[in-house]
Amino acid sequence: MTGNESKAKRIQSPCVGLCSTTVGDRVCRGCQRTEDEIRDWFTLDAEARAARMQALDALRVRVASRFLHVDDPACLEAQLIRHRIRFRREQPALSRAIELLRVGRTRMQDLSRYGLRRHASVACLAPDALYAALQAALMQEAPRRLTTAPIEPSV
């Protein structure tokens, strides 16, 4: 098992250390969970947490696919490792791309060096503006995820 796979197995939460629920947001700008999901996360059993992670990944893929295409998943993964950005082995490439942009958006210039390509509709956006547009779309879509995935803490 590689060092990165070992780290990935230890990730118990989708938290990325950018919690905005503490400043009044009902949905976190960092991980797209609700304040209730964040509070109850560790009361969920592993199966329920995995289901939530899949739902969050599906949300990120659905939104990111409007803005980006992953041309080279191996290149993207290599860049995540190089820049020590955590990800999960089973995490879809577009969900990983959001993390890369979140961390590197002010230092990145040529997205193709990261295995990514902007869609034509956002081709003129710099990485920081692209991330801002992605983030706005995620925040708009995130509450809709809740109507199909109510949280039920395990007892």
Rank of each mutant, 00 (worst) to 15 (best):
V63D: 10
F67M: 10
I81W: 02
M53H: 15
E90K: 15
A137F: 00
R117M: 10
V16I: 13
R49D: 10
R82V: 11
R10K: 11
L59C: 08
R33C: 13
P150F: 06
S95H: 01
G24D: 11
R105A: 12
D25T: 02
K7D: 15
R107Y: 09
A142K: 06
Y114C: 14
E141P: 06
L59W: 07
R10V: 15
V122I: 14
Y131S: 11
A97D: 03
A97W: 11
E141S: 04
L76C: 04
L134N: 01
L100I: 06
A74R: 15
A136K: 03
A123K: 05
G30Y: 02
V27E: 12
A129Q: 13
G24K: 01
R88V: 04
E35V: 07
R10Y: 14
T106G: 00
L130C: 02
D57P: 04
A132S: 01
A55M: 09
E99Y: 02
S65P: 07
L76K: 04
R88L: 03
R145Q: 15
V23E: 13
I81K: 14
S20Y: 12
R39Q: 11
I38H: 12
L125Q: 07
Y131Q: 13
L125N: 01
R102C: 05
R144S: 09
L111D: 06
H119E: 10
V16Y: 01
D72I: 06
L56S: 07
G115L: 05
Q91Y: 03
F87Q: 03
L116Q: 02
P73F: 03
D71Q: 06
R107C: 07
V27D: 09
Q91M: 07
T21E: 14
Q91G: 08
L116S: 09
R117G: 12
V16L: 11
Q91E: 13
R113N: 10
R39Y: 14
L101M: 12
C15G: 03
R29F: 05
V122M: 12
A137K: 07
R102M: 12
R117I: 10
R102H: 08
G24S: 09
A132H: 04
E90F: 04
V70K: 05
D57I: 10
A126W: 00
T106Q: 06
C31Q: 15
A126R: 00
I151N: 01
Q12M: 08
C75K: 00
C31D: 15
R113Y: 03
A46R: 01
E35Q: 12
L125P: 13
L76D: 04
P150G: 09
D72N: 06
G3E: 11
R84I: 08
C75Q: 11
R145K: 07
D45I: 07
H83N: 12
F67Q: 04
E77P: 07
S95A: 13
